[in-house]
Structures are given as C-alpha cells and as structure tokens.
C-alpha cells in the first residue's frame, strides 16, 4: 500500500509541474495586469513596482524564479494583498473551506444516498417522484437562489439560524446546506440509477430465492455494490467541496478559499492564481487516490496499480 502511495506521489510531481507551467503561461496571456488600477500610476512608479516583484524581468527568467521558489514550497507573493504570501493566504483560508466542505459533504451524503435508495426501491411510486423532483430541484436551482431562500426562511423569517458570518457551529449550517444541495441531488440520482442497475443482476435474484431478506439483500449486497460508481464521483466532489465555493462564501461571508478562484483571476494576482490551482490539483490527486483505495475495500477483486 505504501509503495503505491509513494509511486502515486512521485507521478503527481510532473502533473503538478505541467499544471503550474500552463497556469503560469495562461495568466500572463490574459489582457490586463495586476497593477492596472482605477487611477493610472505614473510609469516611474509602475517601474518600481514591477522591479519589486521581478515582473520587469524576461518571462523565461520569471518562470525559472517561480519554479525555484515552488521547489522550496514557496507559492510566491500576492500582488493584491501586499505583505501577505500565497502560503499565508491559503493557510488561513483553506481550513475554513475544509471545515465547511466536509460538513457540506456530510449533508450531501446523508441526504443524497437515502433519497436515491428510497427512489430506487420505491421505483415508479409517489416516493420515487418526490425524491427525484427534489433531486431535480437541487441540481437545477442555482446555489445563490438556494442560499437566499435558506437565509430568508431560517435567518429572517423563523430567525432560528444566523443569516451569515462565521462565528460558531450554528453559523455553518446554512452555508453547508447550500453547498450540499447540488451534490446531494447528484448523489441521489446516481444512487438511484446505480441501485436500479444492481437490482437487475442475477445474483440479487439468487440471493432473494435463497431466502435472504429483502432489506438484508439491499443493505448488505445491493448498496455495497452500487456504491462503486458513487465512490468514484465522491473523489472529485470532495476536492470541489473542500476547496470552497465562491458563491456560498460570498453569500454567507465565509472566509474560505473559494473566493480566490475568482478574485485572484479578476485581480490578475498571478502567484495566487497558480497557488490556488496547484492546491486544487494536489487535493484532487489525493482524493482520487483515497477513492482508489476505497475501491479495494468495497470490492477485494479490484487491485490498484501504482
């Protein structure tokens, strides 16, 4: 197992290098620079600023400098948030997104899996229709609408949960619910189709004909086998959720890292753009590796190749 993890970690290095290089090139192609401001600065001052951040050097030299820093784990400096490094920014924002994302993932699973399971085993009934209507709403209604509705109902009308801010456990509930709506709906639909497919298998009929109880068959055998495609999507889903959501953080004033995926680009904060992209890449690689390991636990016939 450890050798597999080690090999995967090694193979991640060229992937991350390619990601960093492509992002480095792309951010510099985009028109507009980090120091294009509302109030134009005199060229002499722009020259001072560019010299400070080595942006006056040829692009190839900037790239080498960036890679040298990156090799030491230094993601660079923020041009927007002067006096703060990208490492500082992500270190303070990521734990918040992680906390919110994990809670969102928890909600997505506890709502999504039961809804999908009920819809599948009650296929064609009113339960199926209700669950799948809920799932369709969860997928099709934009996050900002769900967030606004939750704020209105629980924050302003019933006043049982905080409208926004990030002060206590209570403050996490509405943003986590908002964050989980779409993934929960997606998981519900996926669970339904996966269970329906599994229910058609011969071995299910065999198990039932041998006298195994209905619920016992569903929980012990059907659900376990149906989980394989669900676990597959849980990898990237987790990566997306724990790296934050711009919309949810924006609506609920959550100090997470999701906002930087958007604001770093609009600010042309070059190092921060590359930093957020790399962090997302690393998390995606890690979650995918965890998913691969989970496969072997769900189905011992599956072997991971390093």
């Amino acid at each position: 197992m450890f050798s597999i993890v080690f090999k995967r970690a090694l193979s991640a290095i060229p992937v991350l290098w390619i990601v960093a290089t492509l992002t480095f090139i792309m951010v510099r192609i985009v028109p507009g620079g980090p120091f294009d401001m509302d109030k134009a600065l005199p060229p002499e001052i722009v020259a001072n600023i560019k010299a400070k951040y080595h942006l006056d050097k040829p692009l190839s030299q900037q790239y080498v400098l960036y890679l040298q820093r990156l090799a030491k784990g230094d993601l660079g400096v923020s041009y927007k948030y002067a006096n703060r490094t990208v490492n500082d920014i992500l270190t303070s924002a990521f734990p918040v997104s992680l906390e919110l994302g994990l809670l969102g993932l928890f909600f997505a699973i506890i709502f999504g899996l039961p809804l999908g399971t009920i819809a599948a085993i009650k296929r064609g009934t009113a339960w199926d229709a209700i669950c799948m209507t809920g799932a369709t709403i969860g997928i099709s209604v934009p996050t900002f609408v769900i967030g606004a509705l939750l704020i209105f109902v629980f924050g302003l009308w019933l006043r049982i949960l905080p409208v926004a801010l990030w002060e206590s456990g209570q403050h996490m509930i509405l943003p986590a619910l908002t964050l989980s709506a779409s993934p929960a709906a997606y998981l519900a639909r996926l669970t339904r189709s996966s269970i329906l497919e599994t229910l058609e298998r011969d071995w299910v009929r065999t198990a039932r004909s041998k006298g195994l109880g209905y619920w016992s068959t569903i929980i012990k055998h059907v659900l376990r086998n149906a989980l394989i495609p669900i676990v597959t999507v849980l990898g990237p889903l987790t990566a997306i959720l724990i790296t934050g959501s711009f919309v949810v953080e924006f609506i609920f004033a959550v100090p997470g890292m999701g906002r930087f995926f958007i604001t770093a680009v609009s600010n042309r904060d070059y190092d921060l753009i590359i930093g957020t992209t790399l962090v997302f890449g690393i998390i995606l690689i890690v979650t995918n590796m965890i998913v691969d390991i989970a496969y072997t636990l769900l189905d011992p016939r599956i072997k991971i190749e390093g």
Partner: peptide
C-alpha cells in the same frame, strides 16, 4: 466585517 454580498 468583510461581507462582500450586499443582500447578505
């Protein structure tokens, strides 16, 4: 506070 969304 740093609340970016006006409506919030």
């Amino acid at each position: 506070f740093m609340i970016p969304e006006q409506a919030t």
